[in-house]
């Protein structure tokens, strides 16, 4: 079983990329599960015809741990992709990080973490230990950074490299950096910049996904691009991403950059 996680700055397109990746993987006849690890709970929406599915934490809150079963939390979406949303507390109260930990413990208890590929779609920044949970305990073994060529986005990706580096140094850790996905904003020399960034953090860019209006069009229609326009060029990009991820064997311990280094890199390609 391949367990991959997508991390990156908030708003960079992790959920869109994850949902299209899951949809593309399912098209290869692969059993896929996507787990949204964000209290906003909108990771799997495009796989569920725009439906916000009940979250694990909502169900636990209403019924307690004992009142929740596997079938309550796993929903089958587009082309058989199994969808789970961890959920979390209302904004501004409680501890969302602990919510992620509790969700993983429950999914583990249910034996829900099975199939050919699990895609974890995680909240923007690794703000606390809870959001590093998918990287620990041998869950997500392959970490993909989603970034554009914008400095703030690279900065967030670099920060996540720090978390991966720290976690991968643990003896039993299976967590490694698997690559960088460039979800382009459309700025000049963006592909070159992200390729160089990936090289400098001891990884590689696995796929450049150009900006295309069709992504927004598909979302307005509550679908992934794969479902909405399977014949489009953009759908080909996501299928190509799926193929490269399935073939990728280059797993590394990242070497995060100092902030000065990162800034001068961004300047070089400006």
């Amino acid at each position: 079983m391949k367990q991959i996680a997508l991390y990156g700055k908030g708003g960079i397109g992790k959920s869109t990329t994850s949902a299209n990746l899951s949809a593309a993987l399912s098209g290869r006849g692969i059993s896929v599960m996507q787990i949204g690890c964000d209290p906003k709970r909108d990771s799997t929406r495009m796989l569920m015809q725009g439906r916000f599915i009940p979250t694990v934490m909502d169900l636990v809150r209403e019924r307690g741990n004992e009142g929740v079963s596997l079938s309550d939390v796993v929903f089958t979406g587009y082309n058989g992709v199994r969808c789970v949303e961890a959920g979390g507390p209302e904004p501004g109260v409680g501890c969302a990080g602990r919510g992620i930990i509790a969700t993983f413990q429950l999914l583990e208890k249910f034996g829900a973490l099975e199939g050919d590929v699990i895609v974890y779609d995680v909240l923007g920044d690794v703000v606390c230990g809870g959001f590093a949970m998918p990287m620990r305990e041998g869950y997500a073994q392959e970490i993909y950074l989603v970034t554009s060529g914008e400095l703030m986005s690279l900065y967030a990706a670099n920060n996540i490299c720090k978390a991966v580096q720290r976690l991968s140094s643990r003896v039993k850790s299976k967590c490694r950096l698997a690559g960088v996905i460039c979800n382009a904003k459309g700025q000049p020399r963006e592909e070159e910049l992200v390729t160089e960034f990936a090289r400098r953090v001891n990884s590689a860019m696995v796929k450049y996904i150009p900006r295309d209006h069709i992504v927004q069009e598909a979302e307005v229609n509550r679908q992934t691009v794969i479902e909405y326009r399977p014949d489009s060029v953009q759908a080909d990009h996501y299928r190509s991403l799926a193929e490269r991820i399935m073939e990728n064997t280059r797993l590394t311990i990242p070497t995060p950059l100092e902030i000065d280094e990162l800034e001068s890199l961004a300047r070089e390609f400006f």
Partner: peptide, 10 residues
């Protein structure tokens, strides 16, 4: 309990 820690104990 864990539930109050996640959702807030207020």
């Amino acid at each position: 309990g864990e539930s109050e820690i996640i959702f807030g104990g207020e």
